[in-house]
Design a protein around this nucleic acid. Sequence first.
RNA 1: GCCGGAGUGGCGGAACUGGCAUACGCGAUCGACUCAAAAUCGAUUGCCCUUGCGGGCUUGUGGGUUCGAAUCCCACCUCCGGCACCA
Length: 829
Amino acid sequence: MAGYEPKEIERKWQAVWAEEKTWEVANPGQPGSDESKPKAYVLEMLPYPSGEPHVGHLKCYAVGDAIAHFRRRHGFEVIHPMGYDSFGLPAENNAIKTGEAPRVATERSIESFRRQFREWGISIDWSRELATHTPEYYRWTQWIFLQLFERGLAYRTEAPVQWCPKDATVLANEQVVDGRCERCGTEVIQRSLEQWFFRITEYADRLLEDFELLESWPEHVITMQRNWIGRSEGAEVVFRCEEVDLDFPVFTTRPDTLFGATFFVLAPEHPELERLVAGTPAEEQVREYVNRVGRESAEERGAEDREKTGVPLGRSVVNPVNGEEIPMFVADYVLMEYGTGAIMAVPGHDSRDYEFAQKFGLPVQRVIEGSDPEQAQDDEGLPFSGDGPMVGSSQFDGKHNREAYDEIVAWLEADGRGEPAVNYRLRDWLVSRQRYWGAPIPVVYCEECGIVPVPEDQLPVELPEIEDYAPQGKSPLAAAEDWVATECPRCGAAARRETDTMDTFVDSSWYFLRYLDAGNDGAAWDRAAADHWMPVDQYIGGVEHAILHLMYARFFTKALSDLGQLGVQEPFANLFTQGMITRDGAKMSKSKGNTVSPGDYVERYGADTARTYVCFMGPPERGGDWTDEGVEGVNRFLSRLSRLCGEVGERTEAGEPDPAAEGAARELLAKAHWAIDKTTRDFQRGFQFNTVISAVMELVNDAYRLKDDLYATPEGGAAVRFATATAASLVFPFAPHLGSEVYEQLTGTRVWEQPWPEADPSLLVSDTVTLVVQVNGKLRDRIEAPAEAPKEELLRLARESAKVAKHLDGSEIVKEIVVPGKLVNLVVR
RNA sequence: GCCGGAGUGGCGGAACUGGCAUACGCGAUCGACUCAAAAUCGAUUGCCCUUGCGGGCUUGUGGGUUCGAAUCCCACCUCCGGCACCA
């Protein structure tokens, strides 16, 4: 090899892998299946195919591929598939703008992704490729929907949605930017419409408990999901309004502060509000307030520094713990979506209630003693959120509030005035979209029979071709009248199809199962195939999916397990989240003009350089800033390896290196084994690819430094040949083309068919060590010392050092610390 | 406000269990090769004082534990990410 010609090398090896289908694996029982090997499912999050792949894709698949190669060479049968999350809004918005059918643009994009993945040399089992927009795929998405529907896990109900008055359409939450319609800029309002939901809240507790079943997930992802689910324990307590003969339950996490409740607040959307004020003097003011709040966006309402607002209702409820009548208010700081939409307000121990009480001149009552004895019992230092003995709480006075907690709930429960309760922040998953480019929801509406699921044997409900993709107040699918008009599968009468499509997160909540049996047209997957491959052993993707995608997929897995379709409770045993690559310190975006196109770099430097660079930038879980100089540095390294290979091939003979070699040969062999040991450990220790690559760089640097001496003897030649082949072998997971080429030239074998090398322990230790000598903890000298030297010997060597002696002069040694094989510290006075 | 993560040269970063701080890469300076440039190869490169030998200082800040701290403990500061009127 003269110069480094990545284009030539990469084309050569890609052709081999494509022709020999190197990365394909068979399911158990199929020809070619190797069941003697343990399995490993390595999976990167599937891409949304829009335009061309960007650097985020490059990083994700470079990281995942390195892991896949590493596992293969450790004897695992690795399944490493690829697909496309090809339904979704960008293709549809593009269609509205240009008139080009979403299918056409999407398939063009898929072609580009597919081509580039091959050009990057990612080791994909292409026989399992899928795209979620194809009927062969979404047929099974629809089938899962029906399974959930049958079990009552999919249901239709009225719900508030975002509505754009100008476009006369419902918008997905993602289409609402700062309270305005993404496309026309009109302020959106909330409307109540019939929508489809998945009952994920039924799985809230299992989604929390089963974090224990995971092997290794980043702690912050688990925390984010935990916060998102937002489980809180407390009590539901009933406050009664005698005047209108209504019970108002509230949820509270602080039943210990019940005696401090001095007023009561309803959310503006509370359904009983109308009844409370109808025909009263407060009616007009309340209605005006509710309307005003209704016009405000969620963002305005939730603003951080917003002042409390509200209106008195002129009604009161009875506090069940002491029979006190407390006044009722409506205020927008109480949310209808959480708890019961009503709260007991305890201004003495809750800062929000306190703020409201201040503004409206309401009494503030202390019921827990403060820690400051000066103000322990008076109103100074309120609101107080800490713990302490209770006061002003009748029979509970003097008890610590945390102890009284359960007693109060039990006392209320005995009289039917309350009970323990659990609340979640998590809402059911709204899955219907009034959009074209998604999987049709497979139900029909019949005058007689109501909602009727489409029978399984009539799936898929195919997405019809339409002319106009713009939503007109209902799904664009409603315009396809021939398609909408159908007959009821149950009674045969005229019926109409559901025109909403599914959220694309539904498609991506089960794709990892379809890979396992992608060609199956009789079932979504074969249970035996799923039992063999699941769970995913290593999942890799961006942290932006920490909550939604990962939680939906967990939910699907549990639901499908309950349906008998799966044998696992968790889909992803290990999760790795990669950090984002920036440019000039900023997130890449077309508007900023700081995007990096992987294709350009692959063209200029080769795929090996681009892949190795994104792995070398820094720890892969962290982000990094893309620099062209950094890319060139990595390219220089690969070129050095390539040139070294050429020289070594010419000047040395093939042969086994001698582990008993001495001098420079021994030094380089030791370095090679050090690199094997270091890369193996760093790979396993959380995918520290940056240090893995730097170890290979060190090996190559040492080979350059020593090579001219080594060529002189056969022993030296064998050493440098071994070192170079080893560098190729270790760098192969990142730079598979060059790794294969160099390894083949020097050994005549294919590197991916070789097991990952093992370090020879005898070459990891050396006869001598560098002894660090400190005086009072400060480094004063370094001495070569026999590795096995006893303490006394090391102390003697240390004291004999002239550099050390200088610092000992005239002082008395009061202590001697010796760490054998490492260091001597002399403490002087 | 709450939760999570991070602060190390000019820059990206390394340092395993408390034991040589700054590996590797970038950038910079110098040299070799060349008519010249690029490429390549080699040397130097934390800061300060010193002609030199050498010495002092240095892991966000302040304190503590220890023979010894980037690493452990306490307090504080800054930056990044997530959630946020969730009762």
